[in-house]
């Protein structure tokens, strides 16, 4: 489902003496449908960078980065957008929304974007918000005013509202209490069970061992300093 072939990434900082930073080179890996893979490595090793590259958020300098057959590294913006809309979900650590939009609307949006009816979208969104213990009185309010944990749960609800065949999870259980962490892990299990390919970053080792089939240490991707 997700396949990387000889992928390399550099950052060129034009405004800082054109410094070139080689982040990773010649990375090849493959994640099958129904598989959950954890990226590991110390902070700054490139876990988030790799996730962002798969999502198309960061550019890729060399190699192929296939998600469901689409090469994210070379695809047109609209192809990447279609991919993100239909195939590739991403739960980031931070919720980024237009200020005054109500929570229920935020969670519904991915389904509305793929043309689902408002009724279907709202029913599914309400189900997830209930599951994630967001009290109903908050649904009509904008999540920008919520606590960190509540925002993270809204973010997860939004990420899981559509049954994406491929998902990227960046610390989905961080800042959650035990009860909500269990809900998130069961959501991940459900996604795996329906055949989603998942790449995640889990600092929480317990969570990692509960849902991940294998680990990939990104430290090995860093080019050896010449």
């Amino acid at each position: 489902m997700i396949e990387l072939q000889n992928v390399s990434k550099t950052f060129t900082l034009h405004n800082q003496g054109s410094a070139v930073i080689n982040v990773m080179s010649d990375v090849s890996l493959s994640i099958k449908a129904g598989e959950c893979v954890a990226l590991t490595g110390a902070s700054g090793a490139g876990k988030s960078t790799l996730m962002r590259m798969i999502y198309g958020n960061y550019s890729t300098q060399a190699g192929k980065l296939l998600v469901n057959g689409v090469d994210v590294a070379s695809a047109e913006p609209r192809e990447v957008i279609t991919l993100r809309r239909e195939t590739l979900g991403y739960v980031s650590q931070f919720l980024r929304v237009v200020p005054r939009v109500p929570t229920l609307e935020v969670v519904c949006e991915p389904l509305l974007m793929i043309g689902q009816s408002r009724d279907t979208a709202e029913a599914r969104a309400k189900e997830l918000l209930t599951q994630l213990n967001i009290p109903e009185r908050l649904w009509g309010l904008s999540p920008t005013t919520f606590s960190g944990g509540e925002q993270q749960r809204v973010n997860i609800a939004r990420g899981f509202v559509h049954t994406y065949p491929a998902m990227l999870l960046d610390e989905p259980t961080a800042s959650l209490d035990a009860r909500n962490r269990a809900v998130v892990l069961s959501l991940i299990q459900e996604a795996k069970a329906r055949g989603a390919a998942i790449v995640g970053i889990f600092h929480d080792e317990e969570a990692r061992s509960a849902v991940c089939d294998r680990e990939i240490d990104v430290t090995t991707f860093s080019p050896v300093a010449a």
């Binding site: 060129t12 900082l13 034009h14 405004n15 962002r52 198309g56 958020n57 960061y58 550019s59 913006p77």
Partner: peptide
Amino acid sequence: TGLTDQVLDDPQHEYSQL
């Protein structure tokens, strides 16, 4: 040119970075 979030989060050209 490119995807909005890519240009904003990983700008390639000197001017975009600035």
